[in-house]
């Protein structure tokens, strides 16, 4: 099946500084794709180009055969949702009202709050496990709860494509796994997930498709079991290691040597 979301020979950068050149990527539909790589390898930059936060200086990011920058903003926002890093909630806002903001692309200037919007918000809060926090102020929540509230916000957007920039950063290991399981479940329900992940072992465990990047280039992509080996990790992360099967899932597990 042809991919709906694609990067075709794109060049990305900030001003004069080029981060990535000639990147090609077909995001597999209905799969969980993890983008991995060392710090500053251009993985977040690539993600930002998918959600129109960065226009490629050459090449095209396409969705259904059209340039993503050619869509009306709300139309593309109903297809592709994005959770950036470092989010700060407005003061005095309770959880359900923050989650309700995810309905923005489904509302027009004068439309009132519909039952459809309410249903989407309730389902999003239930899926992210924050339904019981609905009336709590976002400010007073823990870091893990807050991150799940933001996830609920982007779920309420009800987009078939969900892009996540290091969604597990700053969470303890329990919350990291909870969140990754949630994304895997969403994938099972038919959504396409693309996440920048720091932890290569988690990427291997949860993702169907791993994209390894180094210095702005895609050096390997494919199913974790097919591509992740000591040679790749050495190349991408500059880390001598052995790769063994994960004792629980059998997926590749990276163990650094010395």
């Amino acid at each position: 099946m042809a991919a709906r979301l694609t990067a075709q020979d794109i060049t990305l950068g900030y001003g004069e500084r080029v981060v990535s050149e000639h990147v090609n990527l077909d995001v597999p539909d209905g799969a969980f794709t993890a983008i991995v790589g060392a710090n500053a390898c251009g993985k977040s930059t690539l993600l930002r180009s998918f959600v129109r936060l960065l226009r490629p200086s050459a090449g095209t990011v396409g969705f259904d055969g059209r340039d993503v920058n050619g869509y009306r903003p709300k139309a593309i926002a109903r297809q592709i949702g994005f959770l950036p890093q470092g989010l700060v909630a407005p003061e005095n806002i309770v959880v359900r009202r923050l989650v309700a903001r995810g309905r923005y692309p489904h509302q027009s200037m004068l439309s009132t709050w519909s039952a459809e919007n309410e249903r989407a918000v309730q389902e999003a809060m239930a899926a992210a496990g924050v339904a019981e926090l609905a009336e709590r102020s976002v400010e007073e929540l823990s870091g893990g709860q807050r991150q799940r509230v933001w996830v609920a916000m982007v779920l309420a957007q009800e987009t078939p494509y969900l892009l996540l920039d290091e969604p597990t950063t700053f969470l303890d290991i329990t919350h990291q796994y909870q969140l990754l399981k949630l994304f895997a479940r969403l994938r099972d329900e038919g959504r396409t997930i693309i996440a920048v992940l720091h932890d290569i072992n988690q990427a291997c465990r949860f993702a169907d498709h791993v994209v390894a990047m180094k210095a702005g280039r895609v050096v390997a992509e494919g199913a974790p079991a097919d591509i992740v080996d000591a040679e790749l990790i050495e190349e991408v992360f500059d880390l001598p290691c052995v790769v063994v099967p994960d004792p629980v899932t059998g997926t590749p597990m990276v163990v650094p040597t010395a």
């Binding site: 959600v51 129109r52 936060l53 009306r72 903003p73 709300k74 139309a75 593309i76 926002a77 109903r78 592709i80 949702g81 994005f82 950036p84 989010l87 700060v88 909630a89 407005p90 923050l98 903001r101 995810g102 923005y104 692309p105 509302q107 200037m109 916000m153 957007q157």
Partner: peptide, 23 residues
Amino acid sequence: MAVARPLNAMVLGEQVAHTLGGH
């Protein structure tokens, strides 16, 4: 009053407002 709703998205941060379809 007319810019109030777009600002509702804007207060979540410019990146979020942008990906929610805001101008």
